[in-house]
């Protein structure tokens, strides 16, 4: 741990660690609305099967998760809970915002109770547009995130300094 935080990691070691992180992403399922069903189809159905990409969708708590998929409408009432969930996750942590509602409010852009995008409360790494996005789109978002993990400079990421520009699928 100390080696990573010191920022003096040898390159091959970084590569190896990134490779192993890339293929063991533990994804916490934060199902909110319609997109949760498509996320369920991507994560739990034999047809899409996210596990073949090395994503394990069954952590029992956010404290064991590397990735959270915010799938669905974020309302002002659920914001404290999402915020708390995000704070509980250990660094380095990744967020996929799935669907138009989580991206920007979507069809509820003018509603009085909907938060206009989850990026107002937590930083987002990957945006998956769609209403709802197909499971394939979510899988592509995960693949793109894995590419980013592979090429990441771990120390800066762990210090939360360099998140990079968010990825937009499609």
């Amino acid at each position: 741990m100390g080696l990573v935080e010191s920022g003096k990691m040898p390159k091959p070691l970084t590569k190896l660690l990134n490779l192993s992180r890339k293929y063991s992403v533990w994804a916490y399922q934060w199902g909110l609305a319609c997109c949760a069903i498509e996320m369920g189809a991507a994560f739990a159905s034999p047809r899409y099967d996210v596990m073949r990409l090395g994503v394990i969708p069954f952590p029992a708590s956010p404290r064991q998760a590397d990735l959270v998929v915010i799938s669905g409408t974020v309302t002002d009432k659920i914001v404290p809970a999402i915020r708390r969930l995000y704070e509980q996750m250990p660094d380095p942590k990744y967020v996929i915002s799935m669907g138009s509602c989580a991206n920007c409010g979507g069809p509820y852009w003018d509603s009085y109770s909907v938060t206009k995008g989850v990026d107002q409360i937590i930083p987002v790494d990957v945006y998956v547009p769609g209403c709802p996005p197909r499971p394939e789109a979510l899988l592509e978002g995960i693949v793109l995130l894995q590419e980013r993990i592979q090429n990441e400079d771990m120390p800066t990421r762990w210090r939360g300094e360099n998140r990079g520009e968010p990825i937009v699928v499609g």
Binding site: L32, A33, G72, T73, T75, K77, I78, A81, Y108, D110, S111, Y112, S113, V114
Partner: peptide
Amino acid sequence: CGYMHRGYEKLCEV
């Protein structure tokens, strides 16, 4: 409940 309240009835009016 209300964690998924999106205000349908108001949105329908506009």
